[in-house]
Design a protein around this nucleic acid. Sequence first.
DNA 1: TTGATAGGCAAGCCGAAACTTGCCTATGGT
DNA 2: ACCATAGGCAAGTTTCGGCTTGCCTATCAA
Lengths: 97, 97
Amino acid sequence: MADDVFKALADPTRRLILDELVERNGQTLFEICGRLVTKHGLGLSRQAVSQHLAVLETAGLVITRREGRYKFHDLNTEPLEHIAGRWLGQKAPESTP
Amino acid sequence: MADDVFKALADPTRRLILDELVERNGQTLFEICGRLVTKHGLGLSRQAVSQHLAVLETAGLVITRREGRYKFHDLNTEPLEHIAGRWLGQKAPESTP
DNA sequence: TTGATAGGCAAGCCGAAACTTGCCTATGGT
DNA sequence: ACCATAGGCAAGTTTCGGCTTGCCTATCAA
């Protein structure tokens, strides 16, 4: 469960994909491909991005909905909220003024 | 910078090490080895744990201090606090009562 | 000083992960 | 009906991460 989330976040390309989805939710595979190439200059194939999206989906960080021949990808931040708490929980909360 | 933190957290053994340091801070390499073997039943060599600790240290999650022939490992949770905020930042903060 | 304890360095092995390549399915427009 | 667009599947390659093995250094105690 949490293992999938950490493994998904381990790759810099996947973190960039999450960034793009924060900026504009509900993008298709081709849109994400275009953004990664033009805005960040990384040259990867469409299948590479597709596989990254699959990893993000099994981690629960991306939820997909199909409409016709389009498949839209929505960001789901819920798995991100409890991740660090595993080690921050019972710590003395240092001065947070 | 953040890349090191995510890569460090990607491995389940390293996450277990952080758990052990939460439970008891300032352990030596041999102490951590013993705990991983006895409490969690994983059979890994001392060098494996040493390499894991090195990864955690370059990520800033573990800080070491040397005293004589002992090297104590202290947890540093600071890099964990801003990790998820990258994607949670401009999201509507749900009810935190 | 010798031995035991705590740790470090470096090369090598192996399996998993990232990426490619090639082909296939499905939807929509004209 | 036809073709272009959006996406999927599967095998192959290559790179990288985790782990081992073997040996070396340093500190302390007797």
